[in-house]
Computed example of a mutant assay.
Amino acid sequence: MSTFQDRERAFENKYAHDQEMVFRAVARRNKKLGLWAAGLLGKTAEDADNYAMEVIRADFEEAGHEDVVRKLLADLGAHADEALIRAKMTEFLTEAKSELSEG
């Protein structure tokens, strides 16, 4: 195998790893969002876990994160506005990335 092929395979592996880490960070962020929102809604611990899974699943409806924002806006009503939801998304994504990088 040539050096070029080795480098190409290494870049492909790094890209795949990076994409997996992004996916994991976003899923972790969505779980944190779901647990946060469940707290605002006064859900029990078991219901909070179920709700967090609903938020994670909502992210698969379409590309991007607008599906999650729409779900949370609809569910939270007067408990949170779009600006707060987006701020929490940013905060929780930062936390998720940090947790994943720590191992």
Rank of each mutant, 00 (worst) to 15 (best):
R29S: 07
D18P: 02
L33V: 00
G34D: 05
L100K: 10
D59Q: 11
A87H: 13
A52I: 05
M21V: 10
E20Q: 12
I85A: 04
F60S: 14
Q5G: 14
A87W: 07
A25Y: 04
A16H: 11
R29Y: 04
S2A: 10
T94D: 15
G64E: 07
L35A: 07
R28V: 09
D18I: 11
L72M: 08
H65L: 15
D6R: 13
T94F: 10
E82C: 08
A87V: 12
A80C: 08
Q19C: 11
L40Q: 02
H65D: 14
A27W: 10
N30V: 03
A63I: 05
A52S: 06
S98A: 07
T94L: 12
D67R: 13
L72S: 04
I85Q: 10
K97E: 06
M21H: 08
E12G: 07
L84Y: 06
L35I: 08
V69N: 05
R7G: 12
V68G: 04
E99A: 10
A38P: 03
N30H: 05
A63W: 05
E54T: 10
E20Y: 11
G42I: 01
L33S: 02
N13M: 14
L40M: 08
R28Q: 11
L35R: 07
G103L: 06
G77V: 05
R57H: 14
W36H: 00
R57Y: 13
E99N: 10
